[in-house]
Design a protein around this nucleic acid. Sequence first.
DNA 1: TTGAAAGCGGTACCAC
DNA 2: GTGGTACCGCTTTCAA
Lengths: 367, 367
Amino acid sequence: MPNESKVTTRLADVAREAGVSPSTASRVLNGSARQVADEYRERVLAAAERVGYTTNLAAQATARGRYPAIALVVGDIRDQFFARIAFGAVREAARRGYVLNLLSTEGDTDRERGLVHDLRRQRPEALVLVRKRDTTPMAGSKLMQELMGFERESGRVVIVGEPSEPVLAIRPPDFDGAKDLATAMLGLGYRDFAVFLSDPKVPSARDRLDGFRAGLSAGGVALPDSRVYPTEQSFLGGASSAAEYLADGRDTELIFCTEDEVALGAIHHLRSEGYDVPGELAFAGYGRRRQNPFGEDDWLTTVRSPLEEMGAAAVDAALGPAYGSVPASVAEVHIGGSTPGRAADDGPEKPSGNASRKSRSARRARA
Amino acid sequence: MPNESKVTTRLADVAREAGVSPSTASRVLNGSARQVADEYRERVLAAAERVGYTTNLAAQATARGRYPAIALVVGDIRDQFFARIAFGAVREAARRGYVLNLLSTEGDTDRERGLVHDLRRQRPEALVLVRKRDTTPMAGSKLMQELMGFERESGRVVIVGEPSEPVLAIRPPDFDGAKDLATAMLGLGYRDFAVFLSDPKVPSARDRLDGFRAGLSAGGVALPDSRVYPTEQSFLGGASSAAEYLADGRDTELIFCTEDEVALGAIHHLRSEGYDVPGELAFAGYGRRRQNPFGEDDWLTTVRSPLEEMGAAAVDAALGPAYGSVPASVAEVHIGGSTPGRAADDGPEKPSGNASRKSRSARRARA
DNA sequence: TTGAAAGCGGTACCAC
DNA sequence: GTGGTACCGCTTTCAA
């Protein structure tokens, strides 16, 4: 039993030490309305300092009827997606003086429900549930019922990463991010695009495609379906799509991959086939991997999802008074060496189908 | 105020519903010694189910004088090192029915102290502080004082990742892991080694070097200092050490890099210079990156630090009764394609200094 | 403004 | 075994 004889000073100790009543001590140490005489106030503060007092959160919670905690339920904290969101949430929770409880479903969708249920005993003020948009939807599921139960008896529920009707949701700005990227690429002089669409079934990937297309349309450039290559979401997937692309004899200027990993795989493949990237073919990704196998960080042009911001926004939304007042977090386009600017007056300069110039080291060019 | 009128059923409700006293209800619902008649027990259980009762943890905590929570303080949860440890800790805490509070120092060593101080109001039963072994030591620091204060008044403190005298610490088995790797490499027939030592100042890197050396010694193979290349801990660092290595005209059989990232950079460089890896030169790393730029997961021979296990062990140590009874977590050597087995009877076959065979696609060879 | 006293939701010691 | 009751540490009416 770890609880042998831990000594903690209580509010009563402070009160006695200061020569005031517990009520007064409570008021100056934790109360909201500052209605204590300055002299008493200082006496209490000094006493508290002297005896090393810290509020007992649990006791305060029983008395007040609410515990200043917020529960964060993620799939797998080792996953960058979850980790970045958690980072933002932790930071925001701390800023507000809230305790953050971390729970992990470890990918088990069933566990989600059990966790939400167990969670109730902590009576946190809010629950932030982070879901990857490729996990099974929660429609009218048991989980949803549990969530609504939680909302009724405990506090607010916010879902991050998935639209989910009855509950407040925070979603990554995939559409807008891709649209901004498209605009930026047009600005650099590109006019001829192809897209490697990593897993068309994933909603966020589709959003990125749609957004990219919308951005191009706005600039008067069309993206026919024949230029969209469905791809497996991985390095290898990118490589094989690149092979497919070459086999098609395509000659676009830039390939937008809806996932950085895919872009890196494709680039790797093209380079090993002797192509000059970005000289002959430029690349843009999505997701903002800071490092890449080519040894130059931030070299790949990409879009960074504001995951940390979303985590913070979720906490904000969960704790804030206004239900819909979530500050829109915006994606950030990063222009790297993989998309050098093109002289705008150049006609579409077709690379010869089987170029042979070898260039294995990453370009240092910056936009 | 999110706390409008949340309705929660209390223990008293259950008791009334079951027609027993609160004491009895408490005993069956939360008590340890099972000293309640079966009939009553079932009545209470049924009643609890009916009214949807869940224990109010905060109230229970004030009554019991202890809150079943454990605080986990990490630097940056987005970092794989912290994330994997956190994963293990979360899992173990959940298994024990403990709440896990996640705190982040965001790299600010000063904040560590403030956090530990603030933490006290939660009165968690234990505190697990995760530190990268390259952060500033905590000798007789203020932080350490705060920690000992915590240990006195709240609960046990466990440090992960750094040896720290007065407090219980859990460290990665860097030495043993590297030693096991050396043994395995000897077993594959390698006899001639070099080491890329990423940042000699980092203790874990040194441990890995020492362990590797120890493993070799045990097999009768020496590793002279001239074969140890101090390297910056990054992809680029690996690449430039490889260049340095080539300039030295070395002809070892295998290079052990104390960090996977370094190995990948070195391999990348050697291949782009036309060398055949692992044909001419084998590579082993440390850290177990699952993916690599060469597109084949788990291709690199490496050692996986049992970070998740360490996280769990930390919780175990913090909550368990015996102070020193931490189950030793052991590193796991992973043999991949980067270290093909050598025929044991082969003499040291020297690769010509400037081999030219190009081979850019990853070898599929498996040990 | 200040302090006395009655809770908050549970627990646990104590007689019956 | 079971229920009465004091109490955990803090908050908050309410009267002075």
